[in-house]
Design a protein around this nucleic acid. Structure first.
Length: 796
DNA sequence: CTAATGTCCTC
DNA sequence: TCTGAGACATTAG
C-alpha cells in the first residue's frame, strides 16, 4: 500500500544484529505513525590510487570482514571527488557502529588514498540517500504492521518500496507542548542531588495549561505526573527555553537521584539523551530549544526569556510576574507568596509557547531546506546547516563528500572599506550589490573543485583572480556555482510564488520563511569556504572572492567619480552616493552592462552624518526613521544612558538641525546624573566573558566583576554576560567595577565616571562635528548665575 | 606615550 | 562551530 506521511524525525535501532531505520511521522488522517525500514545498511567509500586494481583492493578489504558485522558488499563505484572521476570502492557493512572500525583498517591499505563519508551518522545518511525532507510530506510503499506495544504510535508500517518526497506545502495539525521547570535553591547554583524541582509548568497548543508541584520538597510525584502528562498529550514537538542545557539535564539528573525513569519519548524505556550539537534528543518527538533561535537576534543583548518575549511582542515585561531565582525559596516557603511563583512559572510557559509561534515556522523551513531534523537544526551552527545542505547537493552531483580535516589557520585580505567624507550630507542614495559574493562565485566559477595550479593557467580557459592570481577553470560549472545558481533562482521562484498569495495566508508565510532560509544559506557560502571546520574549506577560494569584490567595487567607485557623482562612503558591496537620479541610473546600467553584476538603490537618506570613522554613521531616511549604524547607541557594551543620549541628540540634529537644543539636552542629563536621578539600571555596562576567568591576561572591568560574582558563590560560565556598574573610590576602573546586583546602593555609584566615560564621549562623538567641545557640555548655561559643573565637581 | 588585549558591530 | 575589516575602551609597561 501507499502511505502519505509528514516527516518528523528519523532514528535507528539495532534489532537482533540488524539495523532498522525508524521514521517518525504523521499520516494524512492525523495518526502518529512509525515506518520501519529494515533494508538500509551503513557504508562508506575508499578512494584508491588511480592505477590500483579495484578488484584486488576489494578482496583485501573483504578479508577484513568480522562476523559480528560482516562486510556485505565491496563494489567499485563511479564517483567524482572535487569534480574529477575517481577510482573508488563502496564498502557496506551491517552494524552502523562498525563503520568507524572498518574505516581505520581500510585506511591502512597502501592502495587506499583516502576514506570518505565514514563519519556521517546513520539516520542522517538515510535522510540524504532517500532525499527526505524533515517537515515535509512523502509517499512510501509500505505494509501495515498494526500496533507495536514498544512504541507510542497508532500504527507501524514496514517500508517495502520507494519513499518519495511530495510537492505539498500543507502542514498537519501538530501537537506542540511548551514546558518550563523551576528549581528550589538557596545558594544560586541548584544541585540535583539536593534541590528538588518545585514546579513543572506545561502548556499545549490546544490551550491546556497545567502545573505539577512538588509536595514541599518532595518532587517525585511531580516528575511522575509530568511524564504521564507528556505520554497522554503525546506532543510531536516539545519546546522549552534553554531546555537543552538546563531543564532536560536537570530533570534527567533529578530522575536518576529519585530512581525514576524519565519516560517521555515515543519509544519505551528510552529516556532523553544528549546528542549532536549538544541538543537533547527524545525518541519520536522533536525537542526544540527556542533559546537557539533567540541567540540569533543580535539586537537583543540579554537573552532571558522575559526580555526576548517582550522584544517579539509575545508578552510585555511590565504585565508579567518576574522573580529572581535566588528568591524562589522565599516564595515557595511562604503560602501567601507561593501563588506569585506559580504565576511566574505560568508566564514563562506562556512566553515559551509564544516564542514557538514566532520561531517554529522559520525553523521548520530551515529544517526542510537543510534536511536536518527540526530538533537539530536550531542547535547546529550556520556552518553545519549549510554543510548538510551541501552534502545532499554533493550526492545529487555524484560527488564524494570530503572529510573535515585539521588545518593551519591562514588569514587573507578582506573587503574594501572607504574612509567616509565626514560631516552631514543631504539626499544620499545607498547602492547595494545584489548577493555580491555568491554572484562572484557563480560568475568566476569559484570553488575547491575548479581551482587549479598556476602553471597551465591561461586566460582563455580560466578565470584569474585579480591581485592574488588564483586560477579557476571556466568549464565545466563547479559544485559551488551549481549550488549557488540553484539557491539564487530558487529564492527568486519562491518570492514570485509568494506574491500569488495574500500576505496573511499560510502559503505566503511559509514561502516567505522558506525564501529567508534559502537566502541565509546563499549568503553563508563564501564565509563557509574560509571556515577552518568546513569540509569544502578553500582559503584560496575565499581569498579570490574578496579580491574580485575589491576590484569590482573599486571600478564602480572610479566610474562614479568619472561621471561626477560624488561618493560619500562605501563598504564591501555598498556605495553611498549623491542621489542624482540620472547619474545613478547610468551607474547602475554600467554595473549591469560592463561588469555583469546587479546593483540596486537600497535606501535613500534625506540626511546622513559621518565622523571620520568607518562603519559608523547615522541617517534620516525619507520615511522619517532614524538609522544609527555602528555608533555607541547600537552597541551592547555601553550604558542605556549613554545610548539614549546619543540616540536623542542624533535625532535632534538630523531632524531639527538644532545644535543648541542637543547641547541643552545633554546638560540636563548630566545634571540629573549628578543629582542621582538616573535609575541604576541605566548605568549598567554589559560585557560577555569569552573565556574562562582564569584565562584572561588583562584584568578588565567585566573580568573583575565576574570574579566578584564568583566569590559570592555564583557560577560564571564562558559566554555569560556580566553586568556591572562603576562605584566611587580610588584605583583602576576594573577595581571599581561591581556586579550590578551586588551594588544596590545608588549613592555609591561613581557619577563622574558616567559623565566622563559614558555620557560625554557618546555625545561628543556626534556633537564635536558641530563645533561642540567638552567644556560646552559641562558648563551650565549662564542663566541665573548658577554654579558651573566644575565648581560642583570641585574641578579646575 | 605605545602596544596589546578584549569586545562588539558591519558588511 | 561562516569571513576579514574596523572602532574603541582599558590595561600594562
Amino acid at each position: 500500500m501507499l502511505l502519505d506521511f509528514y516527516l518528523l524525525d528519523v532514528s535507528y535501532e539495532v534489532v537482533s544484529q540488524e539495523p532498522h531505520i525508524i521514521i517518525w511521522g504523521v499520516s494524512r488522517d492525523g495518526k502518529r505513525v512509525l515506518l520501519r525500514d529494515k533494508r538500509f545498511r551503513p557504508y562508506f567509500y575508499a578512494i584508491l590510487r588511480e592505477k590500483a586494481s579495484a578488484e584486488a583492493v576489494a578482496r583485501k578489504i573483504i578479508s577484513l570482514s568480522e562476523r559480528s558485522s560482516p562486510l556485505i558488499k565491496v563494489e567499485p563505484v563511479e564517483k567524482k571527488f572535487y569534480g574529477k572521476p575517481v577510482n573508488a570502492l563502496k564498502i557496506t557493512t551491517v552494524i552502523p557502529e562498525y563503520v568507524r572500525k572498518y574505516r581505520e583498517k581500510v585506511k591502512e591499505i597502501p592502495e587506499v588514498v583516502e576514506v570518505v563519508e565514514a563519519d556521517i551518522r546513520f539516520s542522517l545518511r538515510y535522510i540524504l540517500d532517500h532525499h527526505l525532507r524533515p517537515c515535509g510530506w512523502h509517499r512510501a510503499e509500505v505494509e501495515a504492521r498494526g500496533r507495536n506495544p514498544s512504541y507510542k504510535v497508532e500504527e507501524e508500517y514496514e517500508v517495502k518500496g520507494e519513499i518519495n518526497p511530495l510537492e505539498d506545502w500543507s502542514t498537519p495539525e501538530l501537537r506542540i507542548m511548551a514546558f518550563d521547570i523551576e528549581v528550589y535553591n538557596e545558594t544560586g547554583t541548584p544541585k540535583p542531588e539536593r534541590d528538588p524541582v518545585i514546579i513543572i509548568g506545561v502548556l499545549t497548543s490546544n490551550g491546556v495549561f497545567k502545573q505539577f508541584l512538588a509536595d514541599g520538597f518532595n518532587d517525585k510525584n511531580a516528575i511522575i505526573e509530568f511524564t504521564r502528562f507528556v505520554q497522554t498529550y503525546d506532543p510531536d514537538i516539545i519546546v522549552g527555553y534553554n531546555s537543552n542545557r538546563f531543564d532536560w539535564q536537570y530533570l534527567l539528573e533529578r530522575a536518576s537521584v529519585l530512581g525514576l525513569k524519565l519516560d517521555v519519548g515515543r519509544k519505551k524505556d528510552s529516556p532523553p539523551s544528549t546528542s549532536t550539537y549538544g541538543h537533547v534528543s527524545i525518541a519520536g518527538r522533536l525537542n526544540v530549544d527556542l533559546y537557539d533561535f533567540a541567540e540569533e537576534i543580535p539586537e537583543v543583548k540579554i537573552k532571558s526569556l522575559d526580555v526576548v518575549a517582550d522584544y517579539l511582542g509575545v508578552m510585555k515585561r511590565e504585565s508579567r510576574v518576574l522573580i529572581d531565582y535566588v528568591d524562589f525559596p522565599k516564595y515557595w516557603n511562604d503560602p501567601s507568596k507561593r501563588g506569585l511563583l506559580l504565576k511566574y512559572n505560568e508566564d514563562d510557559v506562556r512566553s515559551t509557547m509564544g516564542l514557538a509561534d514566532k520561531f517554529l515556522p522559520f525553523a521548520m523551513q530551515l529544517s526542510y531546506i537543510t534536511r536536518l531534523p527540526l530538533d537539530q537544526v536550531g542547535a547546529a551552527s550556520v556552518g553545519y546547516r549549510l554543510e548538510w545542505f551541501l552534502m545532499h547537493e554533493a550526492l545529487l552531483n555524484n560527488e564524494l563528500i570530503p572529510n573535515r580535516e585539521e588545518k593551519e589557520a591562514e588569514t587573507y585580505k578582506g573587503a574594501v572599506v572607504l574612509t567616509p567624507l565626514k560631516g552631514i550630507h543631504e539626499n544620499i542614495a545607498v547602492l547595494d550589490f545584489t548577493s555580491m559574493y555568491p554572484n562572484i562565485m557563480i560568475k568566476y566559477n569559484v570553488g575547491p573543485d575548479t581551482i587549479e595550479k598556476p602553471d597551465g593557467c591561461s586566460i582563455a580557459s580560466h578565470y584569474i583572480a585579480p591581485e592574488v592570481g588564483h586560477c579557476f577553470r571556466r568549464e565545466p560549472p563547479g559544485f559551488f556555482k551549481n549550488v549557488l545558481s540553484m539557491l539564487l533562482s530558487l529564492r527568486k521562484l519562491l518570492r514570485s510564488e509568494m506574491k500569488k498569495y495574500p500576505p496573511t495566508s499560510m502559503e505566503y508565510r511559509l514561502l516567505d520563511e522558506r525564501q529567508k532560509a534559502v537566502k541565509i544559506l546563499a549568503n553563508a557560502t563564501y564565509g563557509y569556504m574560509g571556515w577552518l571546520g568546513a569540509r569544502w574549506y578553500c582559503r584560496e577560494c575565499a581569498e579570490a572572492v574578496t579580491a574580485w569584490g575589491r576590484t569590482i567595487i573599486t571600478a564602480v567607485i572610479n566610474r562614479a567619480r568619472e561621471m561626477g557623482l560624488k561618493v560619500i562612503y562605501g563598504d564591501t558591496d555598498s556605495l553611498f552616493v549623491e542621489n542624482d537620479p540620472v547619474k545613478v541610473r547610468s551607474l547602475v546600467e554600467y554595473v549591469e552592462r560592463e561588469l555583469g553584476f546587479e546593483i540596486k538603490i537600497d535606501k535613500v537618506y534625506e540626511r546622513v552624518f559621518f565622523t571620520e570613522a568607518k562603519k559608523r554613521y547615522a541617517g534620516l531616511l525619507t520615511d522619517g526613521r532614524i538609522d544609527i549604524v555602528g555608533f555607541e547607541a547600537v552597541r551592547g557594551d555601553w550604558t542605556e544612558l549613554a545610548k539614549e543620549v546619543q540616540e536623542n541628540i542624533t535625532s535632534i540634529l538630523l531632524k531639527e538641525k538644532n545644535v543648541d537644543k542637543a547641547v541643552e539636552y545633554v546638560k540636563t542629563v548630566i545634571a540629573n546624573l549628578m543629582q542621582n536621578k538616573i535609575p541604576v539600571e541605566k548605568l549598567i555596562i554589559w560585557k560577555t566573558l569569552t573565556k574562562k576567568i582564569e584565562e584572561y591576561d588583562v584584568e578588565s572591568p567585566h573580568v573583575s566583576a565576574a570574579r566578584k560574582l564568583e566569590k559570592k558563590g555564583l557560577k560564571i560560565d564562558v559566554g555569560d554576560k556580566v553586568g556591572f556598574v562603576i562605584v566611587k573610590g580610588a584605583g583602576k576602573i576594573s577595581e571599581r567595577a561591581e556586579p550590578f546586583n551586588l551594588a544596590k546602593d545608588p549613592r555609591l555609584i561613581d557619577v563622574n565616571y558616567y559623565i566622563e566615560h559614558q555620557v560625554v564621549p557618546a555625545a561628543l562623538r556626534i556633537l564635536e562635528y558641530f563645533g561642540i567641545t567638552e567644556n560646552d557640555l559641562r558648563k551650565i548655561t549662564s542663566t541665573a548665575g548658577r554654579k558651573s559643573l566644575f565648581d560642583y565637581l570641585g574641578k579646575h
